[in-house]
Design a protein around this nucleic acid. Structure first.
Lengths: 201, 201
DNA sequence: TTACGATACGGAACGCTGCTCCGCTTTACA
DNA sequence: TGTAAAGCGGAGCAGCGTTCCGTATCGTAA
């Protein structure tokens, strides 16, 4: 094989620069549109938002499932990388956790859409799910630990339990304007905070 | 209010005969088409099969969910009524059970489609589910008991467990031509039969 | 730097679908 | 039997997924 890079994410032997650019633009645009309009959003809308033509999107992602899966992996990676950097840039561990969960909720739209797009009992699905857990659980743990160490939230919360709870809160969030999972997630976070952090009214 | 009928299934005060006829034709046609092409089948196909126009189907069932729910209730009723009559008409209780399960599998296509059509966590959904259980469990029990009394199948099988098992076998039956739930259901029934029915090879 | 083949792009066009709307038919009732 | 209302049918519209091919862009070798 020719120069395959250094075990990066793109094993393709050689790709044109504009093709790589467009793929990135499409992933970003699709992620935004999925949050706005769900995973069933018109392909045209995604192409328009990315500033590319219909042909381009179909060349990169022949089926909708291909696109959704790619966005999923991309989001997992972005979410995982955002954890440590938020911890460094945000004012406090709690602020970092809050912002990270915000990203996480956005991302869950894609994750739940996954079940409607690819066969939920296929081998590819379980592979994605384990990837999801392996990559994100340590990040959540790191953020939680930091916030606990800073005395901003009470200790004892399991990362898996929190992620699972947030995930469940976001189920069925489409179609019902009366139900806003973000409000409930915010409540959850509120409940996590130490009593002395917020003044007793 | 005018004459509201006698607490039947149709609370409409007075309906034209052809309207009632068409509604029945639509329910029957939709049921067939759902089995053939799934609950996402084109509305046109259902209208054509029923021999009515597009306007008619949309007047009776404004949304796809309305149609699916109506077919569901209709199927539950038909399935429940078929139990005793099969027991009387079929050659043996086991034959009756076999034919009834055949109906039941057809019907499950609609039931699983329900989850994709109406909100699975809505109150209407749980109401339909309890209706489903209340109406069908006794029938399954009656058929099982009869077959056990006749010595055709081994005793000890719980009706709920059987129905649940058949239901699970029928999950994800769309889209994969390699997976035919009916074969597996038949195997299940085979396993239910008394050892002495089939010669021990 | 230039020229050229390969690669990727864009979007018009097609077929299929859900849904509406209105002229015509059928029904029920007096 | 005559008439108003209720119901019917399907053409037509808008939106979506998907394909296809002329054109633009890129990488490379001279």
């Amino acid at each position: 094989m020719p120069t395959a890079g250094h075990s990066g994410e793109v094993p393709a032997p050689s790709k044109r620069a504009d093709a790589v650019r467009n793929q990135q633009k499409l992933l970003a645009a699709a992620a935004e549109v999925f949050v706005t309009s769900g995973v069933d959003a018109p392909i045209r809308e995604i192409a328009t938002r990315a500033g590319v033509g219909m042909g381009t999107i179909y060349r990169h992602f022949p089926t909708r499932a291909d696109l959704v899966v790619a966005v999923f992996r991309h989001q997992v990676e972005a979410c995982a990388e955002a954890g440590p950097s938020l911890l460094a840039s945000a004012g406090s561990p709690l602020a970092a956790l809050r912002q990270w969960i915000d990203l996480f909720v956005d991302f869950l739209v894609t994750k739940h859409g996954l079940a409607n797009t690819v066969q939920p009992d296929s081998s590819g699905f379980t592979a994605l799910h384990t990837y999801f857990l392996d990559r994100l659980l340590p990040v959540a743990e790191q953020l939680l630990d930091a916030a606990v160490d800073a005395g901003e939230i009470r200790p004892g919360t399991q990362p898996y339990e929190l992620m699972r709870g947030i995930g469940n809160l976001c189920i069925g969030s489409d179609g019902d304007p009366r139900y806003d999972p973000r409000r409930l997630v915010a409540l959850l976070l509120q409940g996590l905070q130490q009593p002395q952090t917020s003044r007793p009214e």
